[in-house]
Amino acid sequence: MKLDGIQAITFDAAGTLIVPHPSVGEVYAEVLGGLGYPLDPDLLEQNFRASFKALKQNKPDAVLDRESWCTIVAGTLNGLTPSDQFDTHFEALWNAFAMPDRWRVLPGVSETLQDLKQRGFRMFVLSNNDSRLRGILNGLGLAQYFEAIFVSAELGVEKPSPEIFRRIEAEVGVSSAHLLHVGDSLKEDAQGAIGAGWQAALVGPKAAASDLAGAANIAELFNVSLP
């Protein structure tokens, strides 16, 4: 894609740079199985997606902090594990997803970030996430590419709110016209950035159906040749 006039690029994290490994449902099943509750990974994945969606619908202004994740996990495990053991199970799952080995870097990400850094672009992470993300990105070798990692749980506001994009503009000292945000969500990433006057690009499954610059992965988006 054309980067004329772009001085800084922000990247979403989950779904854009990294994904749970091997999946949310499988990690839940492994952790809970180790605690004596063998459960079907597909059912856990289904419940997690439904619980996550319910939180977003019922509390659209909620940020993904520990309290929100507690609500999501409670919905996921409802009827599957004893309620009096919830605190133990939640803590185990919270800690599991803080570990870098529970995540994998998506194809082309490392090569693309290295290429963009060599070309002189300032790069940041802008994620609807919590402070665990820093340790994850550091453990996966990605934190080195970014000047800063901004997470919604610390900022108190989430994408697609224009406020979070304005906060980042002030933090990095670059005006909206010279900022590009890359993500996998049409609403949170693309529409949020465009609504704030930024440029935007999509990666992932929704990219092909969008009129925005988009690609299956970041390397394709930025025309980076892979080894």
Rank of each mutant, 00 (worst) to 15 (best):
V105P: 05
K56D: 10
A92Y: 03
L77S: 09
G108R: 04
V63I: 15
R66Y: 12
G79T: 08
L106V: 03
V63D: 09
W94C: 02
M99L: 14
T76L: 14
L64Q: 03
D65E: 04
Q85L: 10
E111T: 03
N78H: 12
N58F: 01
M99C: 13
S83G: 01
G79P: 05
L55C: 03
L80G: 05
S110I: 00
Q57C: 03
A92N: 05
F86S: 00
K59D: 15
R104E: 15
D101N: 13
N95T: 07
R66D: 15
S110A: 14
G75S: 06
P60L: 11
A62N: 05
A62R: 10
L55M: 13
D61K: 14
G75D: 08
L113K: 02
D87I: 11
E67S: 13
A98P: 02
K59T: 11
Q57V: 12
Q85I: 00
F90D: 09
K56P: 00
V109R: 04
P107I: 06
T112C: 04
T81S: 09
S68L: 03
W103K: 11
Q57Y: 10
W94Q: 07
D87M: 09
Q85G: 00
W103G: 11
S68Y: 04
A54M: 12
G79N: 07
N58Y: 01
G108K: 04
P100Y: 08
N95W: 00
R104Y: 09
P82E: 04
N58E: 15
I72H: 08
F86T: 02
A96K: 10
W103F: 12
L77I: 10
S110C: 01
V63Y: 08
F90W: 10
G108I: 05
A96E: 12
